[in-house]
């Protein structure tokens, strides 16, 4: 993303606040406490890495932060909005305007081209169809895929697909980028390319929350949050 287009974020203060957030899954007769009381605050423009052993609740937390899921107990404030009070439409609206996602498995729509995948958020934002192509082209250029604009995901490498996902996540100019093991399926070279994009994005002022298992990747973040058994074990600054 070149800085001419991306409005640099100058907001300060807290964007996300979690208060004793719990998430309990009912599996048969058993309750699985994926999150067992998480309290923290995340500031505007910060870059967080969430780490921890498998099954410690990292993805669960990220999904809650991304409004894809709702907590069983506790409170979640996004920009002082109590997310628990939002209905399905409100949550969709919040995701559409404020959030961007990158997943480990890319999650591009296979029937759509690179262009159409990147345009998807704009489509739901009701952009004038005439203006979406230009925006999509800029984003594709930014992630270095200008020459793959009309290809389908199947015709791209994993690293290229993840860069398309990255471009799509930024199409709506979100407040927060959420990334769940964005390099989990990639080799070290392509991982480095994706990390570079995240670092550049952070420099432009976006808030980034990334789940990762890799310490050298977590090192790029400003803060490292360590999860254990559904709780925050400690936070490294």
């Amino acid at each position: 993303m070149n800085s001419r287009q991306q409005t640099t974020n100058s907001k300060t203060g807290t964007i996300i606040r979690l208060e004793s957030v719990e998430k309990v899954y009912h599996v048969g007769n058993e309750d699985v406490r994926a999150l067992a009381g998480v309290t923290t605050t995340i500031g505007y423009g910060s870059f967080w890495a969430i780490m921890g052993p498998s099954g410690s609740g990292k993805s669960t937390m990220l999904n809650l932060l991304g409004c894809l899921d709702q907590p069983t107990a506790g409170k979640y404030f996004f920009e002082d909005q109590d997310v628990n009070l939002l209905d399905d439409n409100g949550l969709s609206e919040l995701r559409l305007r404020k959030l961007g996602f990158i997943f480990q498995s890319f999650n591009l729509i296979p029937q759509l081209t690179v262009k159409e995948n990147i345009e998807l958020p704009l489509f739901y934002l009701n952009w004038d169809p005439k203006t979406t192509a230009g925006r999509a082209a800029d984003l594709a250029e930014m992630v270095g895929l200008g020459d793959r604009f009309h290809h389908r995901p199947m015709e791209l490498s994993g690293g290229q697909q993840q860069r398309v996902a990255f471009a799509r996540a930024l199409a709506n100019n979100p407040e927060v980028l959420l990334a769940d093991e964005p390099t989990g399926n990639l080799d070290s070279t392509t991982s480095a390319q994706i990390m570079q994009l995240l670092v550049d994005l952070h420099k432009s002022g976006k808030t980034i929350i990334m789940v990762t298992h890799e310490h050298h990747l977590a090192a790029f973040a400003e803060k490292r949050l360590l999860m254990r058994d559904g709780r925050i074990d400690h936070i490294e600054a």
């Binding site: 439409n89 969709s92 995701r95 559409l96 999650n107 729509i109 029937q111 958020p121 739901y124 799509r168």
Partner: peptide, 16 residues
């Protein structure tokens, strides 16, 4: 189903 999930994650409403 996956496609629907992706669209919903991006911000598509049920109605859409």
């Amino acid at each position: 189903t996956r496609e629907i999930g992706i669209r919903r994650a991006i911000g598509a409403k049920r109605r859409q």
